[in-house]
Design a protein around this nucleic acid. Sequence first.
DNA 1: ATGGTTGGCTTCCAA
Length: 258
Amino acid sequence: MFTIATWNVNSLRVRLNHVLEWLALRKPDVLALQETKVEDQHFPEEALRQAGYHVFFNGQKTYNGVALLSCSPLHNLLTALPNLDDIQRRVLIANIGNLRIVNVYVPNGASPDSEKYIYKLNWLNKLQAYLQQELIQHPRLIVLGDFNIAPEDKDVHDPAAWEGHVLVSPAERNALKGILDLGLKDSFRLLNTEPGQYSWWDYRAGAFRRNNGLRIDHILSSSELAPHCVRCEIDKEIRGWEKPSDHVPIIASYENIN
DNA sequence: ATGGTTGGCTTCCAA
């Protein structure tokens, strides 16, 4: 069994103990982190190595930042989409075993009338183009991370209140659909059909207590891998830990892929 | 209820 997870930690330095505790609890083979918000020279490499993980990271000051933790070595590393000139550190790509792993922190988009929204849609367009090429060479592909898009109304606690907002707008959903249409499957939805399953809750207004959340973090499995995905779970209880990230981990398990 | 909270190196911005 191979297990892989994604988690937007909203500052790795603040959340390091949560990450170490969670790794000890769930023992995933791979963990993809987003919003590490730490420059590479300050990355807590040693603590994660001692926990048994190879580390690969791509950070910047204050914003963004991604990392890959893996029990087995990482190879053929990339720290950006090759088709997008972007100073923001949002991507890590690696081979792990016979898999190709793409860790993404998709731009938030701020609001549909903003420059950041245009940047988000362009970013997603470039990601789709890259993945289309990547699937030719690497049919055993997993794309995971914070997509900042709720695919359907059932992934939103109050679709009427959210209509037209960033994270749920038709253009964003269409951009995600373009990526899914490459043959990448939403692993959570392969195995769970119920609404009300979220991966992010706003820190404000008691959102978690009211389960006012969105499902915006995803693990996409290529057509070749999807039939092997036997579990995909949202680790909701972590949101109840002391000083939690606003996102929780999603963990997927695959069998017979060696 | 256009509110509210968290993280960063800030005197506000991003989420």
